[in-house]
Amino acid sequence: MRGEVLPDWGWIFKEVTVTFIVMAGLVGNCLSFVVMKSKYLRVKSYSHYLCALAVFDSLVLINQQIRLVDELLLYFGKPGVWSVFTDISCKIYAFSESVCYLMSSWLIVTMAGERLLVVFFPFRRNSLVTQKGAVAVILSMFALMSYTQVFRIIMVKKVGSQCESSPRLAVYYTNLHFYFYQLTLILLLPFVAVCICNVLVVCKIKSVGRATSNSESTRFTRCSQRRHKTTMMLLTICFTYVLTLLPLVVLTFTIVIVLKTCSLDLARHFVFTLTPWKDVFLAISQVNYAANFYIYILSGSNFRIQLSRIFFKDKMTNTNSTKTREDIMLL
């Protein structure tokens, strides 16, 4: 137990780093939600996805911080967070936590898919990408992700001071949690889908860029460039998801292969050796849930304008306001 031995360096890194990531992420996600609900950005379909992403990312960060607090309490010999839970609260927590992680991952997939439609079918974007459609997709996705995690409500209960599966269902729960939830729904499918969509979008943008560079229509070129700026901002979010998750994906699959192919003693030694790195990669993966606001700041000029409007509303002139509205409506 960590209360009896000195914790490894990876665990210490995770405890310190993730706490800072959580604080920065919660502030950024709250500001992102407020800005995306501003008058001029809330009319965009992608604003609904980004608002939902800010909510579920924040919930993921809060859940992660709760787990860090639980680990610290156990390390200092105190009762853990789950010690005050009941069977019902364990079921609700396990279910809600997994759904939040799934929504954060699959909202990224949805945005990547939407950008794919916008780039490949630009003349049908107004019919394919709508506000009502975005809301319907988010609600449908939430229902689907919730359905995939119903097994937690059935199997999870309080065992001792922890929220775990009942002993008689432990094998089934482990398979569903690890192979179906973690490997398939959290890591493999979203990762592959985002990579494919991003590669196709980038290739299409390059081909369109070459075509518009030879176009004589200045307005057409300008509108295309503005839409591509929005697309590149959303692509940056998707690539951030891929890059922050990649180390954990590789390590997880490596551990699975070792457990399946090597002897028990060798596998145990291998997993023990990689445990600090698993903590480090877990901390890196949390950047995905905290970085979106800062991506908007760096790559989204319209986001910066709307953020300035919120904090410096009285200083915005009518001329700048008119120009901002024209710029935004071109996206």
Score class of each variant (00 low, 15 high):
residue 155 M to D: 11
residue 157 K to E: 05
residue 160 G to I: 01
residue 162 Q to N: 12
residue 162 Q to D: 14
residue 164 E to N: 04
residue 168 R to I: 11
residue 169 L to Y: 12
residue 170 A to W: 10
residue 176 L to H: 11
residue 176 L to S: 10
residue 178 F to M: 12
residue 179 Y to D: 07
residue 181 Y to F: 13
residue 184 T to F: 15
residue 188 L to S: 10
residue 188 L to T: 07
residue 188 L to A: 11
residue 189 L to H: 03
residue 192 V to I: 10
residue 193 A to T: 04
residue 193 A to H: 03
residue 193 A to Q: 03
residue 195 C to M: 13
residue 197 C to H: 02
residue 197 C to L: 04
residue 197 C to A: 11
residue 198 N to D: 08
residue 202 V to E: 09
residue 203 C to M: 13
residue 205 I to L: 15
residue 208 V to W: 06
residue 208 V to S: 05
residue 210 R to I: 04
residue 210 R to H: 03
residue 212 T to N: 12
residue 214 N to E: 14
residue 215 S to D: 15
residue 216 E to W: 11
residue 217 S to N: 11
residue 219 R to P: 04
residue 222 R to Q: 14
residue 222 R to W: 11
residue 223 C to E: 12
residue 225 Q to D: 14
residue 225 Q to H: 09
residue 230 T to Y: 05
residue 230 T to K: 07
residue 231 T to F: 02
residue 231 T to W: 06
residue 233 M to Y: 12
residue 233 M to P: 02
residue 236 T to W: 01
residue 240 T to I: 06
residue 240 T to W: 05
residue 240 T to Q: 05
residue 243 L to M: 04
residue 245 L to C: 06
residue 251 L to A: 01
residue 254 T to A: 08
residue 255 I to Y: 00
residue 255 I to S: 00
residue 258 V to D: 00
residue 259 L to H: 08
residue 262 C to F: 07
residue 262 C to L: 03
residue 263 S to W: 07
residue 264 L to S: 05
residue 265 D to V: 12
residue 268 R to E: 10
residue 269 H to M: 11
residue 270 F to N: 01
